[in-house]
Amino acid sequence: MVALSFAVPPASSAAELELQGSRLVVSGMLDGTMIKEFTEQLGSGTISTVVFEDSFGGTAEAAGAFADAIRASGVQTEVRGQCMAACAYAFLAGRTHRFGYGLQVNGVLLPVAQRPTAAELAVRWRGDDAHKTLSDFMPTSAKPVEASVPPAKDNARDGARDNWQPDHGVLFTASPTLFGRVYNTYYCDGTQGRDFSKCERLADADPYKLGVLTP
């Protein structure tokens, strides 16, 4: 279960930006505090890749703003470490979206209201559907929350949403080994907290085939 062993920094840390040449590194919660600077950086035309590093959630509004800026600029996105919920939505907006290289374990957790079927997995994060990833989880307030965006109420889907909680989603991981990277996919129902070793492993859920990662 080494693939599910993550170092967890303080969850209250606000978003931070660091420019590394043509790469813009985003870490911390996507809470809206850095949206203006982030948009300006991408608007400069000098950024080729946005790297999300250990971002454990945020608000739907901030995730949408980050995603809009990424999509409009046509940059690539990359995950280094963990990228949860709101971060995952912004990550999917990249022209290409990949895991970073190195010795760290990478993981991206995409929020879901309930355990997806094989058929739902096949299309859930492709094309326009990827843009709807957080539509089921619009917040009841603008307050950032750890690794999640709170579910809104909807008469048609209240049951599924009421069952959703932080750390609930499909988790894609990549772990370095002597023989290359090993990719695994898990369904986490939220009751496991940050102990992702308790999540259910999903078969036939390769992140490249599902469109979560691009070549």
Rank of each mutant, 00 (worst) to 15 (best):
D162H: 10
S73Q: 13
P116L: 08
Q165C: 11
K132H: 12
I35M: 09
M29W: 01
G127K: 06
G94H: 04
T117C: 11
G58P: 06
S22T: 11
Q165W: 12
V145R: 06
G180W: 02
N155H: 06
T117W: 13
D68R: 00
F172W: 06
P151Y: 08
P151D: 08
L210D: 02
K36S: 10
A60Y: 09
K198W: 07
H168E: 08
C188T: 08
S148Y: 09
A113Y: 06
V8F: 05
A63E: 05
N184Q: 15
R95E: 13
L121Y: 04
L4G: 01
S73W: 01
K198F: 00
N155M: 09
G211P: 02
L19C: 08
A15D: 10
E61F: 05
V123H: 04
Q20K: 14
R98I: 10
T96I: 13
L92G: 02
F172P: 03
S48F: 11
I47M: 03
A122Y: 00
P151E: 07
A130I: 05
G21K: 14
D154L: 13
G169S: 05
T59P: 02
F56W: 13
R95W: 09
P151A: 15
V51G: 08
L17N: 09
G107N: 08
D136F: 11
A3L: 01
Y186W: 04
L110K: 07
D68Q: 02
E40D: 14
T173P: 03
L110D: 13
T191I: 09
G74H: 12
